[in-house]
Design a protein around this nucleic acid. Structure first.
Length: 894
DNA sequence: GTGGTAGA
DNA sequence: TCTACCAC
């Protein structure tokens, strides 16, 4: 039996980092510590080991967040000053820890086991950490060695494998025999969450128990049989055990059984494990810095990879298609690039199911249009389920060849988004990692992130990599299906998100026509006004400077012109609109700067930004609609973002005049009226709100009337404005702090408004409380259609983080349900337009608004389709009303 | 609250 | 990366 010392933290990330660094010294920290701090420690410690103690023996030790913060406190503030980089800030602390280690190590000539083991406790003593470890935190010090004690954390019930410590696993994995088990939280006097519901087993009694039951497994099995009375005794002992634990840490010093140092020698860093870990955690810059990009190939043995054959003639392909077409399910991976061509370019495609995969490269033998046509029987086969990761580009590609897609679909990317909307990345290799624990070695083009194109790769590379990824589809599909089937998201997935991918694909395909000349003229007009404003500003400042630089502007305003700085940012003076507005009457330069800001924003982001993305062939803007980005279920739009085209100011709104329909078409714009507040009324069941919406009462005036306790007809515009802001705040779940900023009152005043609101609508208040509690219990909240959002922040010990979690918990069901509803409406409208074979098409969604480019002859029909599609998307206890307007450009149609 | 983009 | 600002 080896004499390994292992300190296991409940924090799975760091556990795994420890394994990756096995043999290296490791300083792990708890939640709340910046990852680069962890990295910094690792780096420094490793360096130290390499340079000064090559034979240093692996020690992991664990600094609790509180201790860490303590170390970060006063005494270090001074040293941190002036250090340029985050990492540098951590240096003094790391050095200090090192110093402690050095003392421990170098005090004696040679290295001896008890020194190594003792380091931890010495540091703990020197830094007053023992207290923190034993009583100051809910986690605990956990040691494993052959003669010492296994402390099983209460997170042994945890879901992740790294957290699941049971005696058998300890024995197998660490080669040590556990002699006792201690529930850590019970030690801390926390009875809420103990091993299998048994409160606090003190170490001493635990040993007795094990002796009684022979083995730990046996004890586990009979935990429920232990009499309640005895459990109470154990609980009392729990506190004593805490002090025992401290002894445990020192007992080892005298343990001669640890003289065998060989197994503790430093080993090579496990670069692959580290690579996989960093990949999963998206520590991309760390991967780069540590040069982990090309981990040694490791996956070959365990990667599912089916045989693959290349298809090189149309005739052959036709045969294979008819053969594949008889299958129930088919995995397909399309190597499509978004290029200048609308619909993208398909370099190759790979498809098949388990026993055999087929690879087709487009080119002279089989052209893209021919390929689209040849594959069509599969795409139109409603009896077949196509497993396709990211189906949207495949659909736009098909549209560009006049083809359609009507088979059943399964898209792992979308499935994963529903399972975890905050996962960040949904590329296939990440899915393989999450579901299959595989780290396939793939060219960058297959990993979604890189600039590399499929067409940059050789035939062999494409064949090999696409075979790998296509093989992944089936097992991923099976695992995701199981998870989805166990959830309530079936409807959302099959009837909303999957068809929506096609809707978005067609929206991207059609794009939005733009009058380029008008846009250029608009830009020119802005340019002229900016130039003249610029001169005025230089004159008023008596010097030329870069107005776009908040830094330079800050110097001019607050140093040269002597204006009073109201607010600061991390790097200097704040010059945001809020600050400038408060200074508006202090100096005539201020209004000029505000106007300059507005004009340059319009010019650079909108005028120039939009011109850049007009497609030279279609003359239209083909925005990219992303379905898997937002945590709430909303869609996002990029390159350009068409969901934030100005509307509030007249000058900004003018831009909408350049968004025009095709010849013979008009724009139909339909937007939900107050959809979030209606969702709120429905979810909370508040009668006042429901009646108001049924009667078509102005909701902000109503709120004002009720909160300020005046009759409806005596509500002043000011009162209405405040009420509107409060409604706004409720919908978006903003804090009293942000509300105060929005309506320019004190934070206390804002808090009173919110309180007044909640007292006016007790059902809303009840809902808010219920949702938060529910979220805390389950760890997630859900929308009307069971879209879930995990909110780990609710469990944070940090007030600000927890408050954020609460607001998110209150807001997400509202915003998310509204997102669900408009998505349902989009699918309905799109399907109806398609079914009736109309020329009109859905081209844009802006959260509560749909835009249909409408063939003039179809105007009445389209208005009807849109109204019904949206208003009847879902039956709530309040009506959903839609305002529709028609125009020859977007400006007119709003 | 949720996003995206531009400029320094 | 930070600051600022556009939308719902």
């Amino acid at each position: 039996m080896s004499g390994k010392l292992l300190i296991v933290d409940g924090n799975s990330i760091l556990n795994r980092a420890f394994y990756a660094f096995k043999g290296s010294a490791m300083l792990s920290t708890s939640e709340g510590i910046p990852t680069n701090a962890v990295y910094g420690f690792l780096n420094i410690l490793n360096k130290y080991i390499e340079e000064e103690n090559p034979d240093y023996i692996g020690v992991a030790f664990d600094l609790k967040a509180k201790t860490f913060r303590h170390l970060m406190s006063e005494e270090y503030k001074a040293t941190r000053k002036g250090m340029p980089h985050e990492l540098a800030k951590q240096l003094p602390i790391a050095k200090d820890v090192l110093k402690a280690m050095k003392i421990a190590i170098l005090e004696k000539e040679g290295l001896e086991a008890d020194d190594i083991i003792g380091i931890y406790s010495r540091i703990a003593e020197e830094k007053d950490m023992a207290v923190s470890i034993l009583t100051g935190d809910r986690d605990a010090l956990q040691l494993v060695s052959d003669r010492t004690t296994v402390i099983i954390p209460s997170s042994s019930k945890g879901k992740t494998e790294t957290n699941r410590y049971d005696p058998g696993m300890v024995r197998e994995k660490f080669g040590v025999e556990p002699v006792a088990l201690i529930d850590v939280k019970a030690l801390m006097g926390d009875q809420s969450d103990n091993i299998r519901g048994v409160p606090g087993i003190g170490e001493k009694t635990a040993i007795q128990l094990i002796q009684e039951y022979g083995t730990i497994e046996n004890l586990y099995e009979h935990l429920d049989d232990i009499p309640k009375e005895r459990i109470r005794t154990l609980l009392r002992e729990g506190r004593e055990s805490a002090f025992l634990s401290k002894k445990l840490a020192t007992i080892i010093r005298e343990d001669e059984g640890l003289s065998e140092l060989e197994p503790l020698k430093r080993q090579e860093m496990d670069r692959e494990a580290l690579y996989r870990l960093f990949l999963e955690l998206e520590f991309n810059s760390l991967i780069r810095r540590m040069g982990l990009e090309q981990p040694a190939r490791q996956e070959a043995a365990e990667t599912v990879s089916y045989p693959i054959a290349e298809v090189t003639s149309e005739e052959e392909l036709r045969k294979i298609v008819s053969q594949l077409n008889r299958k129930k399910e088919l995995a397909l991976y399309a190597m499509i690039e978004q290029t200048g061509r609308i619909g993208g370019v398909m370099t190759a495609i790979c498809m098949g199911w388990e026993e055999q995969l087929y690879f087709v490269r487009t080119g002279e033998r089989i052209g893209e249009p021919e390929l689209a046509k040849l594959l069509s029987p599969i795409f139109m086969n409603r009896e077949l389920k196509l497993i396709c990761h990211d189906v949207k580009p495949l659909y736009t590609w098909l549209l560009s060849y006049g083809m359609d897609l009507e088979c059943e679909l399964f898209d792992p990317m979308i499935a994963e988004y529903l399972l975890d909307a905050q996962a960040g990345s949904y590329s296939l290799d990440r899915l393989a990692q999450r579901h299959l624990n595989l780290a396939p070695d793939l060219p960058e083009a297959f990993r979604g992130t890189a600039k590399q194109r499929f067409s940059d790769l050789s035939r062999e590379e494409l064949l090999c990599a696409s075979g790998k990824v296509t093989s992944l589809l089936k097992p991923i599909y099976e695992r995701q299906s199981e998870k989805l089937d166990n959830s309530e998201m079936h409807f959302l997935y099959h009837d909303v998100e999957l068809p929506l991918a096609l809707v978005l694909g067609s929206m991207e395909y059609y794009g939005f026509r733009v009058d380029k000349d008008a846009l250029e003229e608009y830009g020119g007009m802005l340019e002229r006004r900016i130039k003249s404003l610029e001169q005025t500003i230089y004159m008023l400042a008596c010097e030329e400077f870069n107005i776009n630089s908040p830094r330079q502007l800050g110097v001019i305003l607050f140093e040269k012109l002597g204006l009073k700085a109201v607010k600061k940012t991390k790097t200097g003076y704040s010059t945001d609109a809020e600050v400038l507005e408060s200074l508006a009457d202090k100096h005539e330069i201020i209004p000029c700067i505000l106007e300059y800001r507005q004009l340059t924003k319009l010019k650079s982001t909108y005028a120039e930004g939009l011109i850049k993305v007009i497609h030279p062939v279609t003359g239209r803007i083909h925005s990219n609609f992303n379905q898997t980005v937002t945590a709430t279920g909303r869609i996002s739009s990029t390159e350009p973002n068409l969901q934030n085209i100005p509307v509030r100011t007249e000058l900004g709104r003018e831009i909408r005049k350049v968004f025009i329909p095709e010849e013979g078409y008009v724009l139909v714009d339909a937007d939900y009226s107050q959809i979030e507040l209606r969702v709120l009324a429905h979810i909370t069941g508040d009668e006042t709100l429901k009646t108001a919406f049924r009667d078509g009462v102005d909701i902000h005036t109503l709120t004002a009337s009720q909160v300020f306790k005046v009759p409806m007809d005596q509500v002043t515009p000011d009162m209405r404005r405040s009420a509107k802001a409060v409604n706004f705040g409720i919908v978006y779940g903003i804090s009293d702090f942000s509300l105060a900023k929005d309506i320019n009152v004190s934070r206390k005043e804002a808090a009173r408004y919110i309180e007044g609101y909640l007292n006016t609508y007790p059902r809303v208040k009840q809902y808010m409380e219920d949702t938060v509690r529910n979220g805390q219990e389950k760890g997630y909240v859900e929308t009307l259609f069971h879209r879930i959002r995990h909110i780990p922040e609710l469990k944070s010990s940090n007030f600000a983080v927890r408050s954020f979690g609460k607001r998110v918990a209150m807001n997400t069901p509202i915003q998310g349900s509204a997102a669900d509803i408009i998505k349902i409406a989009m699918v309905r409208v799109w399907r109806e337009l398609k079914k009736r074979k109309l020329k009109s098409r859905l081209i844009l969604q802006v959260h509560d608004e749909l835009l249909v480019e409408t063939w003039e002859d179809e105007l009445d029909e389209v208005k009807d389709i849109v109204r019904v599609g949206m208003e009847e998307a879902v039956a709530l206890s309040v009506p959903l009303t839609v305002d529709i307007s028609v125009g020859r450009n977007w400006y007119e149609a709003k």
